[in-house]
Design a protein around this nucleic acid. Structure first.
Lengths: 224, 224
DNA sequence: CCCCACATGAGACTTAAGTCACAGAAAGCT
DNA sequence: AGCTTTCTGTGACTTAAGTCTCATGTGGGG
């Protein structure tokens, strides 16, 4: 009973944009999409590349980042199964502002630009849902700007730890990944973590970081 | 012939979102809006305030900014006549992420949340146009993040000078405003300007800054 | 078992940026 | 004119963050 087509319909149904579609439309959309398969470490898209359409993660893990000429990296977001990536380019069909790269073996469902545009034309409810989603995304970006320009690395780190703790599970990020997520470098994260430990707010263990005083941590994250 | 109503219709017609509306819809919308008047320095909206709807600048000047607890300010954008503000909250009707303040005596046309939502429901073309606009706004935010996290103040300043030069006219910003726009402080802008002058890329005059070598300036802005 | 790749911690140092303090210049007001 | 207010430039200083380097640790694969 689990045909590839049925699987794809289920995946599409989970997407906030598309959950408003009826069965027929979902099946039609599933037929108009294709699935791509990438190894770990594949570059899906680089800054300036033309828009390939909307991508949905079926399995695996994808990193969205900004790169500086000297090789420093700022990770904007990490995506897992059921998440939509490359939204910005998909809506205005312009060249990408970010770089997308797989962190693990990954399967993506691709909705090409024309198909997506047709979907928006024919289903105003999808456009409405997408507006809410884009607005939410914009808020996240604004919050990131506030962090970068007005807060210290330690404060941002406190926030990141709280966020990771909330998101259930596999918060197994390396220091380098945390650093890139915060817009800084490995060593600074190392030191900031140690500072937080000295303050008694966290405990650093072998494989995980335990939040001893979430409230104080949140307070520190709010402060400048 | 210039009744207030006709003026308002003309203003609405200029907005990218709304230019797709026919005459009848424009007039209906104009009737459903009201105009508000504020003195210079008025706080229109603070971080966390509920969404008052979509605002369009009829005359005057408005500043969108982020504030830190210690009083530092990061200016996200400055708006003038014909520009739309408070877009993010208007689309998801959530509380504001930014602070809006008038820099001069200002008249705003207000489209309340329910009216705007109704407009989106009844005119899918508006929703489509708004999607493009929001995507564009998202790109700007991403570019700002790249600047803050990967570039020096001097590089960002070079970019700001080029932007201001392109936008026609009254680039009469004070150093403090430039600093807030770049996410830094007055003194640093002062020094960076001097550095650029020493490099022969600009000349600082009484009332304006002359770009002597726009190409080199652009190159410097691109670099880290 | 050893070796290699990679993650981590830490010290020493450099640098970009922010803060403080002060003084001159311009603009506006009464 | 006098006065205040605001904007500005500058030097001296502090601090947050980034760079460089090396030692340690750990786990997997031949």
């Amino acid at each position: 009973m689990n045909t590839p087509h049925a699987d794809r319909v289920e995946l599409l149904r989970q997407i906030p944009y598309l959950s408003v579609l009826d069965e027929e439309a979902l099946h039609a959309l599933a037929r108009a999409t294709r699935t791509c398969h990438y190894p770990a470490g594949a570059v899906l898209l680089m800054e300036g590349d033309p828009c390939p359409g909307l991508w949905i993660v079926e399995s695996g893990r994808v990193k969205a980042s900004l790169l500086s000429p000297s090789g420093r990296e700022h990770i904007l977001a990490l995506y897992g199964p059921g998440e939509v990536i490359n939204e910005l380019s998909a809506f205005d069909s312009a060249s990408s502002a970010i770089t997308l790269e797989t962190l693990a073996e990954t399967r993506l469902v691709v909705i090409s630009c024309p198909v997506f545009q047709k979907l928006l034309d024919e289903h105003p409810a999808v456009a409405q849902a997408a507006l809410k989603r884009l607005a939410r995304y914009g808020r996240q970006l604004v919050a990131t700007i506030a962090d970068l320009s007005l807060r210290t690395v330690t404060a941002r780190l406190a926030g990141l730890l709280l966020d990771s703790a909330m998101q259930s599970c596999d918060a197994t990020m390396t220091r380098s990944q945390m650093a890139a997520r915060l817009g800084t470098v490995r060593e600074v994260v190392s030191r900031s973590l140690r500072d937080l430990e000295r303050l008694g707010l966290i405990r650093i263990e072998r494989e995980r970081i335990i939040l001893l005083q979430p409230r104080e941590l949140a307070q520190l994250a709010e402060r400048e």
